[in-house]
C-alpha cells in the first residue's frame, strides 16, 4: 500500500473504532463519570447480577433463533416458488420483497403495531413475545428470499432429474440435491436474518407491548437514563463476542477457500 492510502485507511479505522474503544476503557473505570478514578471490574459483576439484562439477553437470542429459522424455511420455499413464476407475476413478487426491505423501519414498526393492536382487541391478546416474533419473521424473510434466488437461477435442474432417475423419491431428491445446491444462499440468508433480528431496535420497540424486553430495548432504557456504566461493560462484552465470531467465520472461510484451491 502506498503511504497516503495507508494513512487514509488508518484514519477511517481510527474513526470507526475510537468511540467503541473509549467505551471499553470506561467500562473499567471506578467512577460514574468520564473522569478516570481507577481500575475496577464491578460494572461487569453488576451486569451479570442484573436479572433483567440476563432475561432480556435470553429473549433476544430466543427471538433471533426462532425468527431466523422460520424465515429461512419460508424464504427458501418462497424463492423456489418465485423462480417458477414468470413475467409480471414474478416481478411483482420480487418487488414485494424489495419494498419490504427498503421501507423504513419506523413505518414497518408502526404499521405492524396498528395491526397487532386491532387484532389484539378482536382476538383478546396483548402484544409481547409472539407479536415480536411475528414482526421479526416478517422483516427477516425477504432477506432469505433475496439471498437464495440468485442461487436457484444458477442451479442445474437436470441434477434433480438425475437424482429421481437414480432412485430417489421427490423428497430425497429435494433434500440431497436442491437443498445441497442452495445451501450457501440459505446460510447467508439465515445469517443475515439472525444478525438483523439481534440488532433490531425500532420494530421491536413498536411491537413488544408493555413488558417484553429484548437487549436492544434494555439498552434503550439504560442509555436514556444515562447513568449506569453497566452499559459500557455490556458494550465491551458485545464487542469482544463480535470480534471472536468474526475471526472464527473468517478462519473458516479461509480454510474452505484453501480446500477449494486444492
Amino acid at each position: 500500500m502506498k503511504k497516503l492510502s495507508k494513512l487514509y485507511t488508518a484514519l477511517i479505522i481510527f474513526f470507526m473504532y475510537m468511540p467503541i474503544i473509549v467505551l471499553v476503557i470506561f467500562s473499567f473505570n471506578d467512577g460514574k463519570t468520564t473522569v478516570w478514578k481507577g481500575f475496577t471490574l464491578k460494572w461487569y459483576a453488576d451486569l451479570f447480577r442484573d436479572s433483567q439484562i440476563m432475561s432480556a439477553l435470553w429473549n433476544t437470542l430466543l427471538v433471533a433463533v426462532l425468527a431466523s429459522a422460520i424465515a429461512t424455511v419460508i424464504g427458501t420455499m418462497a424463492a423456489i416458488g418465485i423462480n417458477n413464476f414468470s413475467g409480471k407475476k414474478r416481478l411483482l413478487l420480487q418487488n414485494m420483497s424489495n419494498i419490504s426491505i427498503l421501507s423504513p423501519d419506523v413505518v414497518t414498526g408502526v404499521s405492524l403495531m396498528l395491526m397487532f393492536t386491532i387484532a389484539g382487541v378482536a382476538f383478546h391478546f396483548q402484544m409481547g413475545f409472539w407479536t415480536v416474533l411475528l414482526a421479526h419473521i416478517t422483516f427477516c424473510t425477504p432477506f432469505v428470499v433475496l439471498s437464495v434466488l440468485p442461487r436457484i437461477r444458477h442451479m442445474d435442474y437436470s441434477l434433480y432429474e438425475a437424482a429421481l432417475d437414480l432412485g430417489c423419491n421427490q423428497w430425497q431428491a429435494f433434500r440431497k440435491v436442491v437443498v445441497h445446491e442452495l445451501m450457501p444462499g440459505i446460510f447467508t440468508g439465515f445469517l443475515m436474518s439472525f444478525t438483523y433480528s439481534l440488532d433490531d431496535f425500532v420494530i421491536t420497540y413498536f411491537t413488544r407491548g408493555a413488558s417484553f424486553q429484548t437487549l436492544s430495548i434494555q439498552i434503550y432504557t439504560m442509555t436514556h437514563q444515562r447513568i449506569s456504566p453497566k452499559i459500557n461493560a455490556l458494550s465491551a462484552l458485545m464487542f469482544v463476542v463480535i470480534i471472536v465470531l468474526m475471526v472464527i467465520i473468517n478462519v473458516k472461510d479461509r480454510k474452505a477457500e484453501k480446500r477449494m484451491g486444492e
Partner: peptide, 14 residues
C-alpha cells in the same frame, strides 16, 4: 455488528 444504540451512546460519552 455493534448494537446501533451503543454506537450512538459511545458518541454521547465522547
Amino acid at each position: 455488528w455493534m448494537n446501533f444504540l451503543l454506537r450512538i451512546y459511545a458518541w454521547v460519552t465522547l
